[in-house]
Design a binder for these strands. Structure first.
Lengths: 135, 135
DNA sequence: ATAATTTTTTGTAATCAATACAATTATTTA
DNA sequence: TAAATAATTGTATTGATTACAAAAAATTAT
């Protein structure tokens, strides 16, 4: 994806494609490791010397409201962010602390949802041991 | 459940059944509304005049470690607690902010988990609109 | 029983993620 | 080009949670 791709994606979602928002969104797309706001801040601060922490939060909130980014409530102490917005599951390895994405069949998700309830978003979290740590 | 039932449950789980821990656990069992530490603190402060906020946190952490209580990461700003420890799903209504439990078939959960991964705990969160608010 | 040891509770202080706010800067519209 | 609007920035604040050390309670050893 080129710089102008990001620009047009933001525009299409109704938000002004500022340098900062593009940088944050680009970082999330390139780093699908569910980074925290602080992780993003520290990474971008190296590239762009002046980049306020508040702007990271502002940009993330804007991107979430625009539907381009999802929040992931994996750890209670800090919010994590994800540019993959289609429904998918998260596996958190309790040994290596790695976070793994996995596909989620939308129909299965539908079946899980209790009758009469209409879900907009579904999250599935597993915690346990990943294949590598199981050995 | 009588007071002595709670006492023996805590004992059986290897933690000393202090007045404070019993009160916190009893509150969680009687109030399956996924309260926050602060909600529990305010409720118990009325009954027991001296009851430290720190003790609530200590007791909750002890109960979670003992496997009697689960944490629920519904809202990012504060941790919620749940005395129902078997796998079940949570539906959060975005209109009335209510939290609804629903049954979860363990086999379905098993199928969702990717191959090679061993899960200890599974959480399913839906956010959307509850039946009442859908009308 | 009583003393010594361990565990729990308590209150205050500290931490840390996230937000509020007001001033500055950049962008868009008139 | 000026006026209006939107975004960014830095600092101050909030609020949940934890750290810590002293006091109280409970357990164990003498």
């Amino acid at each position: 994806m080129t710089e102008s791709d990001f620009t047009s994606i933001l525009s299409r979602h109704g938000i002004r494609p500022t340098q900062q928002r593009i940088a944050v969104y680009k970082y999330l797309v390139s780093n699908p490791s569910h980074p925290s706001a602080d992780t993003i801040y520290r990474a971008l601060s190296e590239q762009y010397p002046v980049f306020s922490r508040t702007t990271i939060y502002n940009s993330l909130n804007t991107l979430v409201e625009a539907g381009l980014v999802r929040t992931v409530n994996i750890c209670p102490e800090e919010q994590r962010f994800d540019a993959t917005i289609d429904d998918h599951g998260h596996f958190i390895c309790e040994k290596c602390n790695g976070i793994f994405d996995f596909d989620l069949n939308p129909e299965v998700l539908d079946k899980l949802c209790p009758e009469g309830f209409k879900f907009r978003q579904g999250d599935v979290f597993f915690s346990g041991t990943c294949p590598d740590c199981s050995r």
